[in-house]
Amino acid sequence: MFLAFQYPIEIPGVATMQFLKVAANAQRKARGEKEYTVPEFMKHVRAKAEALNINQDMLKRAVNVGFSGGEKKRAEILQMAVLEPSLCVLDETDSGLDIDAMRVVADGVNALRSPDRAMIVITHYQRLLDYIVPDKVHVLSDGKIVKSGPKELALELEEKGYANFVGQAA
């Protein structure tokens, strides 16, 4: 399972590349697969990074340290791409992103969509869902799912607001 944080944590002193490698190999070890060698892994990450418009320089820097909001979010998606989890939770990944950055993030997420991978996208707005088209929409209020529906439900929400649903829950 992978949780993309709303506010990714900064870890001074730990290089992003080193961090990714340790995490990826830990998974492979757990799955009984062969661990990546350094050159293999570099190649693997670089390809993914390029797709997300993450430059090589960022990989050398410490995890999230000094990253802008957009960079942090892209780094989260990169981690997701590298670690290939079976369940992904994206917690308000769209907050603080401009349109271009949102598109990059969404493309990254869409590239990872597959029948054997579940994704939960948490958001307050429709705009992210313009890029990541959901299969199902659930409205959560007070810790309970108060309504479920197809992707159109999100559009309806955008139009009418949450008030109706919150009222139902109360």
Partner: peptide, 16 residues
Amino acid sequence: YLRSRGIPEAEARSLL
């Protein structure tokens, strides 16, 4: 954060 990325406890500590 490291644990959430699947890095085992001992390894995460060593890394830090």
